[in-house]
Every structure is written in C-alpha cells, then in structure tokens.
C-alpha cells in the first residue's frame, strides 16, 4: 500500500534536514516508536507500538536511513516483525524537502508499506485505512518538533 501527504514547516530547509537525518529525533515523530537504540552501521532497533482503535500491535523493527541526499531527500527503511504474531512489516518512507519561502519548507512524505502473515492476510483493509492517518500524524509531529526545536534555539 502507498500513502503520501505533505506539510508546511516554518523552518529553513537545512534545519528540517538536520532534524530528519537524525534517526533518534526522527523516530520520535512516529507514534508509538520507543526504545530506539543504535545497532551500529547506521542501523537502529526500536519497538513500534501501534494502536488502531482497540487493536494494539507491537512490532520489533530496525530502522536505517537508506538514502540521504542533502538538501532534498531522506529515505528510511523500516522492517520488522509483530510480537506474538507471525508476520512482517516492511516500510519504505521517503521525505522530500523543498523550500517554500525564506524560512519555510514543504515536506512531502511517501510511505510504501507491505505486510505479510496474519496482518497482511486479514488486517490489510484496516491498516490501509490507518496508514494515511498515521502518515499525516507523523507529518504534524515532525512539524511541531522541528518548529519547537527552532524556538529553543532562538535567543
């Protein structure tokens, strides 16, 4: 499944880029992503707890930046397995940064997610419905985090 969306961030492109290429900061913008720790070679492990209404799923995932091209492009690869359920999640997330004004950046996200096992065979429709919501919330969190970081930096 593929979802995409975009958001306007009141911050210069380089600040947004600095933030987004930091996996530990970036993953804070993903809801339910915790216990992020570096495994080496730019790879990180994390626990992703997704709550879809009353359905709660936990995934053990690895996150790595598969492409980093300043100033426009950051791509991450997130792969993992659900806890206590046979399955697999494989997501490729791309961020495209474009200047939208003197201190404004338009961030477009594109998320390609494939699910296998029970999640893919039975839960696909609800995940598909929720992916867009997750993506949009990620974008909002990213904007808020970048903008508040900028405020901290401001004298």
């Amino acid at each position: 499944m593929h979802v995409e969306g975009n958001i306007l961030i009141h911050a210069p492109q380089s600040d947004v880029f600095d933030f987004a290429e930091n996996v530990e900061l970036l993953t804070q913008c993903i809801e339910g992503c915790r216990n992020v720790h570096e495994l080496g070679d730019g790879k990180y492990a994390a626990l992703l707890e997704a709550q879809i209404a009353f359905l709660r799923m936990a995934f053990k995932v690895t996150v790595e930046l598969s492409r980093v091209e300043r100033p426009n492009t950051i791509e991450a690869h997130i792969a993992g397995t659900p806890v206590n359920l046979v399955g697999k999640i494989d997501a490729r997330a791309g961020l495209t940064l474009e200047p939208a004004g003197p201190a404004e950046t338009r961030v477009t996200y594109a998320l390609d997610v494939s699910l296998a096992g029970k999640l893919g065979g039975m839960g696909e429709s609800v995940f598909r419905a929720k992916a867009k919501e997750y993506g949009d919330r990620f974008a909002v969190h990213l904007r808020d985090a970048v903008e508040s970081k900028l405020l901290e930096k401001a004298p």
Binding site: Q51, L55, R56, K118, G121, M122, G123
Partner: peptide, 23 residues
C-alpha cells in the same frame, strides 16, 4: 485497557480473535 472489550453477538470480534488481530 483497550484489550478489555464488551461482546454481544460476537460475530465481528470472534473473527478478529481467531485471526490473532485482537488478543
């Protein structure tokens, strides 16, 4: 706790439980 859930006829919830989506 979202894993505490009321159930009436169970026609929808049981399918989710059998699939392991809802535990």
């Amino acid at each position: 706790d979202p894993s505490v859930r009321p159930v009436a006829g169970g026609t929808a919830l049981m399918l989710m439980m059998k699939a392991g989506l809802f535990q």
